[in-house]
């Protein structure tokens, strides 16, 4: 028995190719049924996310199974996609790396594990898995857990929005009852506001020199738009300020903020200044209860987190190597039928 993995991901295919091959949730049962009908293929799992479409199959004849998958995909999508492919043990290793977030666009991201679990559950529910893939995926989940808990691969946030959300959590804890004000509706402030909303923020006030732009963003994220002339009236009740105006001078000064902070009943204020030139005087960080982060400090934190994650790759690979060797031993013991180390021609690098 051999384990075959064939697919495309963000490393080798642009989104316009990936979207052609993507398998929607409602199509999954039908796709699994068709893939399992391929000659020489006994079990199958399809992992389809925004960054990858991968077919995992247990097969006694991987070359025939691979040919069948290629034919099926080219019929289905109408293109000859540049599939990469692996057989045992590289396929096992590939799945363990995918589940652990090592193959993700954002190194160490954890969303992929949930997506792989969902893909496996769907295949199991459809009766498309049996002993080999059950064992493989359950082992993959264990590997991902070990990698996450024994290394720092998921440590810290690696984007400006994620860093802002992490810091907001470290200041306020639960963000549900916090009021966010977005001053200047630029792209980065929009992404940051969206990140905060995704973490439970319910009240977002958007103010922009162009009111229509503020109204449009407020509409998209479920917030409230106010005229730029009125933002200071709403400011005293705000917990998090995301600022990115195009003003040439600071719009929030220490002289403005100090008396305001005295009336906030001890509530902290988190200011995310994404503007260049900066919207907020740097000295406001010295005010008791005010935490000011500008774009450089956020990017610096994100860079350091990513550097920490990159340093952990070797450690993660060693954990994965151990589990791959262990799994291959299990396969040899339970599937003593001939399974050469690799019967397929070399695949594209992943």
């Amino acid at each position: 028995m051999n384990i075959l993995c064939a697919g495309i991901n963000h490393h080798i295919a642009p989104v316009n190719v990936r979207e052609r091959l993507a398998v929607a949730t409602h199509e999954l049962t039908d796709v699994l049924r068709r893939v399992r009908a391929i000659d020489g293929l006994t079990e199958a799992v399809v992992v389809s996310t925004c960054n990858r479409v991968e077919f995992y199959a247990a097969s006694i004849c991987p070359e025939r199974a691979l040919h069948g998958i290629r034919t099926y995909l080219s019929d289905r999508a109408g293109i000859d996609a540049p599939l990469y492919h692996h057989d045992t043990p590289r396929s096992v290793r590939h799945l363990f790396r995918v589940a652990s977030g090592l193959d993700s666009m954002v190194l160490g991201e954890t969303e992929i594990l949930g997506q792989v679990k969902q893909a496996y559950a769907s295949a199991a529910d459809a009766g498309a898995t049996a002993r080999t893939l059950n064992k493989l995926f359950q082992r993959a989940f264990r590997v991902a857990k070990a990698v996450r808990s024994d290394t720092q691969i998921t440590r810290g946030a690696t984007s400006v929005g994620a860093v802002a959300v992490e810091l907001a959590g470290k200041i306020f804890g639960d963000l549900a009852n916090r009021r966010v004000m977005v001053l200047g509706a630029g792209d980065t402030s929009e992404r940051t506001a969206r990140s905060l909303v995704s973490r439970g923020v319910k009240t977002v006030i958007v103010s922009n020199r162009t009111f229509d732009r503020a109204a449009a963003l407020a509409g998209e994220i479920g917030g409230m738009a106010i005229h730029f002339d009125h933002w200071q009236n709403e400011f005293p009740d705000v917990d998090i300020l995301v600022s990115s105006t195009a003003a040439p001078h600071p719009v929030v000064t220490r002289a403005q903020l100090e008396p305001m902070m005295r009336h906030r009943a001890g509530r902290p204020l988190f200011i995310i200044d994404l503007a260049v030139p900066r919207d907020v005087e740097p000295t406001v960080n010295a005010i008791d209860g005010v935490y000011l982060y500008d774009i450089d400090s956020l990017q610096d934190i994100a860079r350091r987190s990513l550097a920490v994650r990159q340093r952990e790759i070797d450690h993660c690979e060693r954990i994965i190597d151990t589990h791959v060797a262990d799994f291959v031993r299990w396969m040899r013991h339970h599937h003593p039928t001939p399974a050469p180390a690799s019967v397929l021609t070399p695949a594209l690098p992943t």
Binding site: A157, E166, G169, K170, I171, F172, G266, I301
Partner: peptide, 25 residues
């Protein structure tokens, strides 16, 4: 300790593992 880390803009191991500052208050 948490306040010092936040003011210094360091997302250290200590800061990541300390509870939110408002909760500590």
């Amino acid at each position: 300790v948490q306040e010092r880390q936040l003011k210094a803009r360091r997302l250290s191991e200590l800061l990541l593992n300390l509870p939110p500052i408002t909760e500590l208050g």
